[in-house]
C-alpha cells in the first residue's frame, strides 16, 4: 500500500494506492494519525481512487479515523471508492455513519 499525503489548510488528504487489508492496516492508520497530529489537522479526506480491494480490516481503519476526526471536531470524507469497496462499506453500515462521495 502506497500513500500520498497532501495538506489543504486544516484538511489532510490521504491518497491511498493498492489493496487495503490486514497486512497494511496498522501502517495506514499510524501514518494518517501521525500526519494529522503533525500539522494540527482537523479534517480528513481519504481518496480511494487507486484502491481496488478492501476487506473488513479497512472498515476498522475507517471507523478508527472517523472517531479521531470526530473527537477533534473535524469532518471526514471518503471519496472515489470502487464498487467492491462500496459493497463492503454498505454491509458494515459505514455509509450511514460517514460521508462518501
Amino acid at each position: 500500500m502506497e500513500m500520498r499525503i497532501e495538506r489543504l489548510g486544516s484538511t489532510l488528504v490521504a491518497k491511498l494506492d493498492g489493496e487495503l487489508d490486514h497486512s497494511c492496516a496498522a501502517e495506514v492508520r499510524e501514518r494518517i494519525d501521525m500526519e494529522m497530529n503533525a500539522g494540527g489537522m482537523k479534517n480528513l479526506v481519504m481518496d480511494f481512487d487507486k484502491v481496488d480491494f478492501m476487506d473488513s480490516s479497512g472498515i476498522g481503519v475507517l471507523i478508527g479515523r472517523y472517531k479521531r476526526v470526530n473527537a477533534l471536531g473535524g469532518k471526514m470524507l471518503v471519496i472515489r471508492t470502487a464498487p467492491q469497496v462500496d459493497k463492503i462499506i454498505k454491509i458494515s453500515g459505514l455509509d450511514k455513519l460517514m460521508d462518501f462521495e
Binding site: 492496516a25 492508520r29 476487506d55 473488513s56 480490516s57 472498515i59 476498522g60 481503519v61 471507523i63 478508527g64 459493497k87 463492503i88 454491509i91 458494515s92
Partner: peptide, 16 residues
Amino acid sequence: DDEERSGMGFTVMQSF
C-alpha cells in the same frame, strides 16, 4: 484486543 478490528469478518463472508 486490537480495538481497530471491525468484527465484521464473518458477516462479510456470510453476505458475500
